[in-house]
Simulated assay, not measured.
Amino acid sequence: MTERVVPAGDRRRRRPTKQGVVLSEELIVETALRLIEEHGADALSVRRLGRALGADPSSLYRYFRHTDDLMLAIADELIGRTLREWRPTGDWCADLRELGLRMHAGALAHPRAAVLSAHRVTGREHEIQAVENIIGTLRGAGFPDAEAVRIYHAFVDQALAFGALDSAGTALPRSARDAETEVWRATYAHLPAATHPHIAATARHLVATMRHSSYPAALDLLLTAARTRLDAFRARTEG
């Protein structure tokens, strides 16, 4: 897609295309998401999308101005899927942990799209709602506004970064993933204590742990630190 603006009022069509497809923004995003997982970033072309949708490629400009516009919609859809079943309980720490794990799982469910979109700021409906919910959770817990934003920033960036990191690993061919896992057993587990005492002492833990994502542990560390900061703030204000 290249830049080609269609007036907003003319973007939606209710009647089917010549191929019998009734296009919608949702259908285009869903199809693009599927194609990205199958073919990578090269899937985002008017020709390929039109072919997959059974529609004239030019009709896509009624919904998206260009490829980047569509990429932002895809990023926002991934956020929306994360939020769809998240229900805050009032326990801020447990709620953020659940949301973080959902964000990470959502990235792994669409690894190629996650790698492409993790660094984007969409300014769209689902992202705005996510920002509102997370900051609201932190303010409701008692964090001062500046601290709430600071922790929000760290929380979101951590989830997105781990999502992209682990998604990149998931997107590797199975043989490459297996080979990297094997390095811990075949190389690190056999380093001698005389030259690498700390690796040798922890080798069995490295073999058992390094094959898995460290995101849950990193998330717990972040939330524990946040709770400690909140306790310290309360102690200062009460004192």
Rank of each mutant, 00 (worst) to 15 (best):
D231L: 12
L27Q: 07
T137Q: 08
A189C: 07
T237F: 08
D178F: 05
E238D: 13
V156R: 09
L27G: 04
R185H: 10
G100C: 09
R177C: 07
M103W: 08
A8E: 15
P197Q: 00
G40F: 02
A193M: 00
G100Q: 12
R150C: 05
P173I: 03
D10H: 12
S45I: 06
S59P: 05
T224L: 14
M103A: 14
R102V: 12
S214A: 15
A114P: 04
R14H: 08
A194R: 13
A235T: 11
T224C: 12
L165S: 13
R4F: 13
T209R: 15
L160E: 12
N133M: 14
T228Y: 00
A171M: 02
A232Y: 04
H39G: 04
L83Q: 08
L101A: 10
W86M: 04
E26S: 14
R12N: 10
G239Q: 11
E182W: 11
S59W: 03
T237Y: 01
R229H: 06
T202L: 12
R102P: 14
L191E: 10
A193W: 00
D166S: 06
V5Q: 12
A41R: 09
L33T: 09
D42C: 03
L222Y: 07
S45G: 12
Y152A: 09
D68M: 06
S175L: 06
L138S: 02
I36P: 10
L27C: 05
E180Y: 03
R234Q: 15
E132P: 04
G50R: 09
R84T: 03
G9P: 12
R227S: 13
A218W: 07
A141S: 11
E147R: 08
F143W: 02
A55G: 04
Q158T: 13
L78S: 04
A176D: 13
T137P: 05
A193I: 00
V183M: 11
L70R: 04
P197G: 00
